[in-house]
Amino acid sequence: MSALAEILFGGLFQGSLYAMMAVGLALVWTTIGVFNFSHGVFMMLGAYIAWQLVEIGLPAAVAFPVAVVVMAGVGWILQASVVRPLIGRPNIVLVVVITTLAAGSLIENGALTIWGPRSKQIPALIDGNTTIGGVGVSLHQIAIIVITPLILAALWVFLNRTRLGLALRAVAQNEDASHLVGLNVTALYGLAFAIAASLAGLAGIFMGGYRFMSPVMGSDPLLKALIVVVFGGISSISGPIFAAYLIGFFEAACSYYFGLYWTPALLFGVLILTLMVRPEGIFASRSRGLA
């Protein structure tokens, strides 16, 4: 019983964090058609900005939302400076990989210079611990498990039920037609990056609440988010969300039965196998072409 509870809880918790990261990556991919390799750095920056705001005396309830909003601005600026000028270039996918990597390195080293290498921690969302089904868990983790689906649901409503969200999806589906019907495609590109960056920043705040922060804390979650996105399929938003939880459970089960060391290797093995059988991802429809 306790084994099942542990796997279930671990899976839900990790899955929530992966989902938050992966959705942003997928959003940028579907709208602009590029992969943002500074996404992990967004996560780190969100956590550090939140830490800084708490440090100057703001209560967490104010500091966290402010940090998320600041991250939206950071995402917008990054998009405007290293992605937008390249749109329309023949080899944009490759060039954006290197410009976002370089921008990530810039921000990461900037954070290292400003805040130093010493590990930091930000306050938990809710303090305290509890026991569910024989497994001791912190209330912070439960808060994350509860809040994440709400945020993802809100994002779904935004993308499917509001004019702005529909405009974003229109750009994702057909950029030329979006221009023709008068959508401000440039602004929508910025919006996609802004949403992605704030989601990553929020994931960073969640993570900084239970684990020590460092300027390189985003690289591993970025990697996991990449796997999730490949696994779930790139062409939709819901695919990566399902995949995030699936991988969360897979990891929890693997580390329970095979130990922490073998989990990443098993995960990548499964990933490569999946791609050989279904290159478009397990939750994607077969109709969409690969390019």
Binding site: W29, F35, V93, V97, L223, L226, I227, V229, V230, I234, F268, L271, I272, L275, P279, L290, A291
Partner: peptide, 10 residues
């Protein structure tokens, strides 16, 4: 394209 990046990265 991008799928090759992801698999080789993996």
């Amino acid at each position: 394209g991008i799928y090759i990046i992801l698999v080789t990265f993996g």
